[in-house]
Computed example of a mutant assay.
Amino acid sequence: MKLTKIHHVAIICSDYETSKQFYVDTLGLSVVSEVYRNERDSYKLDLAIGDDYQIELFSFPNTPPRPSYPEARGLRHLAFEVDDIEAAVRELEEKGVIVEPIRIDPVTQKRFTFFADPDDLPLELYET
């Protein structure tokens, strides 16, 4: 088997409209498709990140909260690559998003920071 890249990351949200607004309006991801699945009482929103990657945003009724602190097993966070981390942080803060201070990765010497989506999913900005 030869894995060539990550195709998508799937996220389940608690409030579909709030999360859709966050990922589309706040983060600027573009909508590829949006489907309501009546049999599941669920939306599925495909969002493009650049030309190669996607986020699938799902809504399901009565989802349990995500255990984060202390950190639980499973996906730890989702990281987005940016060219200018300071500009990205300013843009998020102007939109009311709380962003942690920018830090430097001691191994790569690259700058990074964290913020959260409406369901407290940890999101990272990583400057290349």
Rank of each mutant, 00 (worst) to 15 (best):
V32K: 13
T4M: 14
D52S: 10
S68R: 15
L75V: 12
K95M: 00
V107N: 15
A87P: 03
E94D: 12
D15F: 04
Y53F: 15
V107Q: 14
T108A: 13
T113W: 03
R40K: 13
D25H: 08
K44T: 12
K2H: 12
S59F: 08
L92M: 00
P61G: 04
P61C: 06
D83S: 13
V35A: 15
A10F: 00
T4D: 15
I55E: 05
V99Y: 01
D51S: 09
L29C: 03
E56I: 06
S33W: 09
K20L: 07
E94C: 05
L123T: 03
A88N: 08
E17V: 03
Y16A: 07
G74Q: 08
D119L: 01
V89Q: 00
T18H: 08
L29Y: 05
L121T: 11
H77A: 01
D84N: 10
E34G: 06
L57H: 01
M1L: 11
A87L: 10
P64W: 02
S59D: 04
S33T: 14
A79T: 05
I85N: 08
P122M: 07
Y23V: 03
D120G: 03
A87V: 09
A79M: 00
E124Q: 09
D83K: 13
L27H: 07
A87Q: 14
A87D: 09
P70T: 07
G28A: 03
S42G: 09
D83E: 12
E94L: 12
R90N: 14
Y53I: 06
